[in-house]
């Protein structure tokens, strides 16, 4: 049982839902990233998703793209990110999963990635450009290591395929709210609640919804139907301010924003 499985088991018993902020590693530097992780958990976030910057992220909108570019402009390396995590994860109350492109995992070596991430205290990975059909080898390694490999289902996924994806996913299932790239939306599709509701009846796996979620009202609307919610661009946009504003202020802004989302959880 991975740390993610334990978390959701506990939340289910307590009748609670998870909030999972996404931030980019190394934006503007790893010291700040570690401080933000601590702040997010201190405010009550249940889990954090850490984006490993990639040069060609096709699933990401302008806000996360720009954060990746800022981090890579400083010649950020995977080894440095893992080193930062080794120091930070023991201080965190909840699990950290990496959002990482398959280009990076493959180049690092599949087995080496799982081992090195796990050694740094990482509980799992979301590999957004590795559809279930291509994930066999990595999924096998992850299972053997009890390292969660979180798969994604989207509004364009046919239902029979969604069931197969749910079977191969571990930790939780990531339901992408919209047909599109990451980024804040004012409104989310009407069909979302029904689609996630249907999927929840089909699989015992926890389901977390991500993409577009940015407002307390989104949290109120979606939390009842899901096991957790993922918020990315709205936080990354606030962190981007660290380039020009005092860091303590940015940290407080991010913490307060996340607190408003947490307060909207049932």
């Amino acid at each position: 049982m991975s740390r993610i499985d334990e978390l959701f088991e506990r939340l289910r018993v307590q009748g609670q839902k998870a909030l999972m902020p996404f931030i980019t590693a190394g934006d503007p530097d790893l010291e700040f990233t570690a401080a933000v992780l601590v702040e997010l958990m201190r405010r009550g976030s249940h889990m954090c998703e850490l984006g490993i910057p990639y040069s060609d992220p096709i699933a990401d909108g302008p806000v996360i793209q720009a954060s990746y570019t800022r981090a890579l402009d400083h010649k950020l390396k995977l080894a440095q990110i893992l080193e930062m995590l080794s120091g930070a994860t023991p201080k965190l109350s909840g699990p950290v999963v990496t959002m990482v492109s398959y280009a990076i995992v493959l180049r690092h070596g599949l087995k080496a990635y799982v081992e090195d991430a796990q050694r740094a205290g990482v509980a799992g990975a979301i590999v957004p450009d590795l559809p279930a059909d291509e994930a066999g080898e990595l999924a096998k390694l992850c299972r053997a290591a009890d390292f969660s490999l979180i798969q994604l289902v989207t509004p364009t996924t046919p239902r029979d395929r969604a069931l197969r994806i749910a079977e191969s996913s571990t930790g939780f299932l990531y339901y992408v709210s919209v047909t599109g790239i990451t980024g804040e939306r004012t409104e989310l599709p009407q069909s979302l609640v029904d689609n996630v509701g249907w999927l929840r009846e089909q699989t015992p796996l926890p389901i977390c919804i991500g993409f577009g979620i940015s407002q307390p009202q989104h949290v109120k609307q979606l939390a009842p139907v899901a096991d957790g919610l993922i918020v990315g661009s709205a936080i990354v946009r606030r962190i981007a301010e660290a380039a020009t504003k005092p860091r303590e202020k940015v940290l407080a802004d991010v913490g307060e924003y996340v607190a408003t989302l947490l307060a909207a959880l049932p």
Binding site: A59, A103, P131, T156, P158, V176
Partner: peptide
């Protein structure tokens, strides 16, 4: 070869 793309594109 293969297909290393987000799930969103798989059906298309």
């Amino acid at each position: 070869g293969g297909r290393y793309v987000p799930e969103t594109l798989m059906r298309a």
